[in-house]
Design a protein around this nucleic acid. Sequence first.
DNA 1: GCCTGTCTGTGCGGCAACGTACGCCAGCCC
DNA 2: GGGCTGGCGTACGTTGCCGCACAGACAGGC
Lengths: 232, 232
Amino acid sequence: MLPATNHLLALLPRRERLRLLALSSPVQLDIGTVLSEPGEPTRFVYFPQDCFISLVTTIEGTPVLEVGMVGREGMLGAQLVLGVGVAPLHALVQGAGPAQRIEAGPFRRELARSTPLQRLLNRYLYVLMAQLATSAACTRFHRVSPRLARWLLMSQDCAQADTFHLTQEFLAYMLGVRRVGITAAAGSLQRRGLIGYHRGEITVRNRAGLEAAACSCYAEDGRVYSRLLARP
Amino acid sequence: MLPATNHLLALLPRRERLRLLALSSPVQLDIGTVLSEPGEPTRFVYFPQDCFISLVTTIEGTPVLEVGMVGREGMLGAQLVLGVGVAPLHALVQGAGPAQRIEAGPFRRELARSTPLQRLLNRYLYVLMAQLATSAACTRFHRVSPRLARWLLMSQDCAQADTFHLTQEFLAYMLGVRRVGITAAAGSLQRRGLIGYHRGEITVRNRAGLEAAACSCYAEDGRVYSRLLARP
DNA sequence: GCCTGTCTGTGCGGCAACGTACGCCAGCCC
DNA sequence: GGGCTGGCGTACGTTGCCGCACAGACAGGC
């Protein structure tokens, strides 16, 4: 896998992948960019190559809580697969990097044509739904520190990097807690030698330890993903 | 709508509806029956006519929190639409009553044949996903009392009845809180004259008042539903 | 050098919900 | 009637997180 590749695209048969790539154009996603707002029409879909996007749910129009992540293993805009041209969630670029972008029209046409593409993305939608359900329970029952550990692991999976730029303020927003809650939780993880951070640069130091510190939801998500989207 | 009708079925073109009904058999769902467990194969799909089913998410195999409801406006087993034969959630019959049941095999075949059916159920899946995302935020940010009000309204919509059998113990389980939390919240709603209850029989007395007492998520869910599944 | 803005750490009071436990009441069975 | 069970109400100490506020630390621009 020489160039950074999106895993969904990689799972497609070669012909289908090439057709899709022909429709797509490479774009560079910048941190903080909002790619969709709930209720707005979907103009593009994105297949991240080396970047990741947070899916944030809203209350009365205000984004308040992350409920899913899209990285190289997923795509943004999967609602088109359901024939719905309206975005369900607030989508925010979290880690900058390259992605393949396709306009909604051509993407829908390709989708209508290609059964393998439909089947693949249907499975991806299932994984997304499972992630949403898990998130709901996790947010309710798990403490800040294990949730933070889970979040860091997930973003590491998405970003394929050991270090990324994340302020505590921002993490608090994603997890739906106060910033000082993150200060405490991150401090605990750091004292245990699992992570290091300094002015917004977070480094994962001990991946295995972090997995042990994370709540069960991380492993659960992984199981669902690999059951449905493992390479045949 | 003389006999109790499932709304999804009602939205289908007449020919399609009749085909589907020919495949289905009427069943009576009993309260407390578990219709699916996460990870288990899907043997049947259900179109509730006058009953409703809770979708409960699990943590390490234990069902802990309701994240969605299926009543006459929905169906259970929609994962088959995504080509996945494995249930994502714990499904529990909440309100007893009649439903149409179809075996997974014939349902899949019919699905493969009928584009209108696919399109309709795709839209329904979108609504379900939106419900999951809303639930996550609601559980995190809203107080017990408004959530209880929302829950009662949703089950009233599903069950089409003013009174239903629900112990506080059970409500606590659905909302992921202690029983005494429900005692307090329900007491508050009762003192305000919105509901009445006695030994597990809950009655909605003032629907409009209950809507005012519920959190915004109830209205939000309704908007998404009617935008996507309104009769054309 | 200094100033400014950003990021992080700490402290304090408050509160909703938690875990636990006990008592009351209604209905059912013997 | 007496006893049992299931459903509900109340109480008490605990806790994890909240809101707010403020102070220190570091980086970049001038």
